[in-house]
Design a protein around this nucleic acid. Structure first.
Lengths: 195, 195
DNA sequence: ACCCCCATGTAAACGGTTACATGATTTC
DNA sequence: GAAATCATGTAACCGTTTACATGGGGGT
């Protein structure tokens, strides 16, 4: 049995203290942890209902404007549940990277397709670096954010991952070029260099 | 609509040329691309049946020993389908990293729990480096493997990712220590250093 | 009056894992 | 002949995405 983590994302976001609607929670997720987590409304709304039935969150109806919007607030029981989850070791590292899969099988494709795959990976990594540098700037602009430490740790991870991808793309190009030029011997020579 | 990639993994493995049973395909996946892909029998067997109905693979019954085992061979149509898939750009970069999620919310946990999370991540990364260095040795021992280039590219990616994680763990520790010692000012000083 | 954004929700389909059942073959 | 390994398959369950339906509020 695997434990669903969706509920804990919701609790974690609400743990900041502010009452938020499902829509706002989703926006928050898209802004803060977008690079390693995503949630769809189809998950969020039913889960919020369940959480409130279990007493881990409660409706905080009174807001300035009267609306159909339903803001939620975390309860003490919710904070405890979140804490218990955080105390448990994390499971399930991310798996299933389609780019890697295609690259691994790329000798069955045209060389153009293989080059295309690497180029796309490079483009994605560059975009990611740019997005993360923006996020970094935004975080540094507000040094009193209680999430400052967490945000920086997470952004650092994202930046390192993206830059690693750029280096790896260059390396993959070099390996491929060596292979094209001189087969397995040249490839192995290239591999041993800067290893 | 998202495209299922399971079928193409099967085709990709069979494209090597050898006839293989579902069991052997799974073993091959576990040995070659285990770090970014996994398949379960519950996916493999029904999908093999479907592929054979579509004429992308065909049964290659006659093997030396008579068995319940059912080896499959890729057909020309299967190779074309694989190629078409490889020509399309890859979608869906891997998402949902529970470790990152917990770390992001870790200010709501005990400091012991946060340290524990990082320690586990470091341990996992070290194990991964060791496993990948073994894989590297195994690959280098057989320079005539037609998958040599792909394997090295993939191993390189895995090694870079794992080593990046080790560096990031150290950095995260340093950031956390700075925060504990001197709050956000010390944290920001530490952040700017070696940035 | 119209459009865009905010906002909630549901149903269907899908992909995937897990658990379970079963049995052949090899090796010791 | 027992144990380990090779091997196939299915059913149930679960989490997730997608598409669809609906409507209020603010701005132009």
């Amino acid at each position: 049995m695997r434990e669903p983590s969706t509920r804990y994302v919701l609790l974690g976001v609400l743990a900041t203290g502010d009452a938020m609607t499902g829509f706002e929670i989703r926006s928050f997720i898209d802004q803060s942890v977008q690079f390693f987590w995503r949630e769809s409304y189809g998950q969020i709304y039913p889960e919020l209902k369940r959480l409130s039935e279990e007493g881990l969150i409660r409706a905080a109806s009174a807001r300035g404007r009267k609306r159909a919007a339903q803001p939620w607030r975390i309860t003490p029981a919710g904070r405890e549940a979140l804490k218990r989850w955080l105390d448990r070791p994390a499971q399930a590292q991310p798996l299933r990277d389609e780019t890697m899969l295609k690259l691994f099988f790329s000798r069955h494709a045209s060389t153009a397709a293989a080059r295309e795959l690497l180029a796309a990976a490079r483009g994605a990594a560059q975009a990611r670096v740019a997005a993360l540098e923006n996020a970094e700037r935004a975080v540094l602009a507000d040094p009193d954010d209680p999430d400052l430490l967490s945000s920086l740790i997470v952004i650092d991870r994202g930046l390192r991952a993206a830059r690693m991808m750029l280096e790896w793309c260059a390396r993959a190009d070099a390996l491929r070029a060596a292979w094209d030029a001189g087969g397995s011997e040249a490839l192995l020579r290239q591999w041993r260099r800067s290893q």
